[in-house]
């Protein structure tokens, strides 16, 4: 292939930036959960999907204005996250089940809830953005849509917010304390149950926001959450659990790799590239970019 034209390069950069910010949001949501609980919650994929579908429901069946629909959708998605935590995962922790049991249970929960969405909404592609499609804004010859600009802004805002929360507030310290050693934190009077609930709520909210933004940009299908969750997990593993800078870098590497592979090879290879990077990191750099001595990521 010849060297691409300037406007094509510009377009590529915009696309990578947009994908990067979505993945950051997802990786953030997943790593909060993983950092604290040390097990993967696949059911989070369905929280992503729920966020998108609930906004769709509120917008077009209950005819709510956009901002109310989105706020209610986020609140409802958070309650789904909290309910599954309270009634399933907490009970499992109390029974001291091994970590693969959580994985299996969350896959089960994901399957059930995803099928509920399929049953209620049907499997066809829905669209949050039902208005006439408009031509995007032009920046140096490349095109970007309003939704994409908004996505980048929201993700950046949320990311900075979370960074400040974790590093400069008492709550952030408490979360880190419980993540490092829950029993020890309890001795100091930090209720680990409370912290777990707070983190579950926040990470569900982030997942729902990511789902809504993604759905606004492309469309909704009941299975959309799973791929997004995997991207988030891969970005988190590349970046290293519990490091904000690592998350940012991990997501950037993933987004760039996906876009460049798609550009220079074929879009068919996008997912393959994702997993090759994942395997390479698991083999040679299992702690991710950050290299912090946290627990190794185990599936």
């Amino acid at each position: 292939m010849d060297t691409p034209k300037l406007l094509v390069v510009m377009q590529l950069i915009l696309n990578i930036l947009h994908n990067h910010m979505i993945i950051v949001l997802l990786a953030l949501s997943i790593s909060m959960n993983y950092y604290l609980l040390k097990n993967f919650n696949i059911a989070q994929a369905v929280v992503i999907t729920f966020g998108a579908y609930l906004s769709y429901l509120l917008l077009y069946s209950f005819h709510q204005p956009l901002y109310i629909a989105i706020i209610i959708a986020i609140i409802l998605s958070v309650s789904i996250g909290l309910l599954s935590e309270l009634f399933i995962f907490k009970q499992m922790r109390n029974r001291k089940l091994p970590s693969f049991a959580f994985l299996v249970a969350s896959i089960g929960l994901y399957t059930i809830l995803q099928n509920c969405i399929s049953l209620y909404f049907g499997d066809d592609t829905k669209s949050l953005n039902i208005g006439e499609i408009a031509v995007g804004h032009q920046i140096f010859g490349a095109y970007i849509t309003t939704v994409q600009i908004f996505t980048i802004a929201v993700s950046a805002f949320v990311f900075i917010g979370m960074y400040l929360l974790y590093n400069y507030t008492t709550l952030g310290k408490q979360i880190r304390a419980v993540s490092e050693n829950a029993e020890f934190a309890t001795i100091y009077g930090i209720s680990s149950n409370k912290i777990i609930l707070i983190v579950t709520a926040v990470s569900s909210a982030l997942a729902a926001i990511a789902g809504i933004l993604y759905a606004y940009d492309t469309n909704l299908t009941p299975t959309m959450g799973f791929n997004l969750l995997l991207y988030g997990i891969v970005a988190m593993i590349i970046g290293g659990v519990g490091s904000f800078r690592g998350l940012l870098l991990g997501s950037l590497l993933l987004a760039s790799a996906q876009n460049l592979v798609a550009y220079y090879l074929d879009t068919k290879w996008m997912d393959a590239a994702t997993y090759i990077i994942l395997i390479a990191f698991l083999l040679w750099k299992p702690l991710g970019f950050s290299g912090k001595k946290l627990k190794k990521v185990e599936i």
């Binding site: 691409p4 034209k5 406007l7 094509v8 377009q11 590529l12 696309n15 994908n19 940009d217 492309t218 469309n219 299975t223 959309m224 791929n227 876009n259 798609a262 550009y263 074929d266 879009t267 068919k268 996008m270 997912d271």
Partner: peptide
Amino acid sequence: ENGYNPTQKDFRIIINKLKN
């Protein structure tokens, strides 16, 4: 000539290549 996976939702890369 370019193929894409059935789950693909973001076609901007393909469109970009087509323009190029």
